[in-house]
Amino acid sequence: MESILVMIFCALALYYLSRRQDQVAESLIGEEFDRFERIYNSVTYSCHDATVVRKSLHSSVALPIVPSPNYHARALCLTEEGHWFWFDASIRYMKLSHTRITPTTQDEALEALKDDPEILQRYFPNFGQKPSA
């Protein structure tokens, strides 16, 4: 009976640690996102001023009870001027190891959003409509 209680306690502790690491990873990436900015071809891509259209955070371990030291985040963003870009960040051993902004086209953004009709309608309201004659 005691061994079952110890196993339950260990499982709960691992689950809590896993959730806590997810929060820390999201916080690290969020802080970097808020201050990250790059200029490509005379266009300023500022994460702080951009709208995050879609985001994802993946850990290297897919089991919810096992803490992961490595994460990858990706966000599709839209600037106030209408420029699309991807923000990528990686965490290795709970330290930010890599960040990158990659400008993208409107067609690539449309392709990335095609499986979410609500977001697609919000950012591409004319998509799927037949041209008027």
Rank of each mutant, 00 (worst) to 15 (best):
R92S: 12
I119E: 06
A112D: 12
I101T: 10
T104D: 09
V43H: 09
E2W: 08
A13G: 02
S90W: 09
G128S: 00
E31F: 13
M7A: 15
S68C: 07
H83L: 05
L76P: 08
L63D: 03
Y93N: 12
D49G: 00
E118D: 11
I29K: 00
S68D: 08
L110S: 03
R19M: 09
I4Q: 14
P125E: 06
Q106L: 05
H83A: 12
I65L: 07
G128H: 03
S3F: 12
E2M: 05
L120H: 05
I29L: 06
R92W: 10
I39G: 00
W84N: 08
S46W: 08
A133G: 09
S60N: 10
Y71D: 04
L76K: 06
F36E: 07
A25C: 07
Q129R: 10
K130T: 13
S59W: 03
Y71F: 15
H83Y: 15
S56C: 09
C77W: 13
G30V: 01
N41V: 09
V24R: 03
L12I: 15
T99A: 02
P64M: 01
V53W: 03
A50N: 00
H48M: 10
N126P: 00
A112N: 10
Q23H: 14
T104I: 14
R54C: 06
I4H: 12
L12E: 08
A25G: 05
V53K: 01
A11H: 03
K130C: 03
R19Y: 10
R19T: 10
E118T: 09
Q129P: 00
S18H: 04
L120Q: 04
R20C: 02
D49Q: 07
R54W: 11
Y93K: 10
K55N: 13
V43I: 14
L96T: 07
E81L: 07
D107I: 14
E118H: 09
P125R: 05
P67S: 07
M94L: 12
